[in-house]
């Protein structure tokens, strides 16, 4: 699913160079539930951005579902993000003026799917996360846990093979957090590949495997 070999990312600010990733090797198989842990400044966010195709590496190779995406342009990556990756953010990042329904529909709008197909998919996803009755509510009318479930439904709209979650429970109380993690677990059991960033070992315990990053390099799997 994900195969990174000697991946490097160098930031240049004027004449100063900063090496955020110093040759990362990471392999995630289809159907795995992996936690990524690491202290701040370890290159964790940079790695997530590259995995999510929001950023491009400056060296090495990155194969996503067998395709090398390290050399693609931004707009080419837009398509990859749309179809291959589902994002779940710590702060939900829902559109405030749009209803739960419209938020889930968003990725499909950029793919030009027809209205009946969109409607069916949105209804299906909202039912799955248990928010079908809330479909006409705006994010401000929903609890944090409900907002995150809408965000998960949105991430799954295009049925991407991999789900990327960046501290998905960071803004939630523990009960809502557990619900979200249970949802992830059931998604994983249904065959979805999940990569989750966290700094909490208790949360990482939900996953099947935990990888650590430190100073731009992967540490051995635990």
């Amino acid at each position: 699913m994900i195969d990174m070999r000697n991946l490097k990312k160098v930031y240049k600010t004027g004449s100063i160079e900063f090496e955020a990733l110093k040759g990362v090797f990471l392999k995630i198989e289809k159907g795995e539930f992996v936690s990524l842990m690491g202290p701040s400044g370890s290159g964790k966010s940079t790695l997530m951005n590259i995995i999510g195709c929001l950023d491009t590496p400056t060296g090495g190779s990155y194969y996503l579902e067998g395709r090398d995406v390290s050399g693609l342009t931004f707009d080419q990556l837009s398509e990859v993000r749309n179809q291959k990756v589902g994002f779940v953010f710590q702060s939900f990042n829902l559109l405030p003026y749009a209803t739960a329904y419209e938020n889930v529909e968003l990725p499909m709008l950029y793919n030009g799917k027809k209205a009946p197909e969109r409607r069916q998919r949105v209804d299906e996803l909202l039912t799955m996360v248990g928010l079908y009755d809330w479909r006409k509510h705006r994010p401000t009318e929903l609890s944090g846990g409900q907002q995150q479930r809408v965000a998960i439904a949105r991430a799954l709209a295009m049925d991407p093979p991999i789900l990327l979650a960046d501290e998905p429970t960071g803004n939630l109380d523990s009960k809502s957090g557990e619900e979200i993690l249970d949802l992830f677990t059931s998604l994983w059991k249904a065959g979805r590949t999940i990569l989750m960033v966290t700094h909490d070992t208790k949360i990482a315990a939900y996953s099947q495997r935990t990888v650590h990053i430190l100073d731009g390099k992967m540490e051995a799997d635990i």
């Binding site: 929001l54 837009s78 398509e79 749309n82 994002f87 559109l95």
Partner: peptide, 16 residues
Amino acid sequence: LREIGVKLAVGAKRKQ
């Protein structure tokens, strides 16, 4: 900005 970021993240192209 955040709205634009979300749209880009879910697959909007720059020209859109």
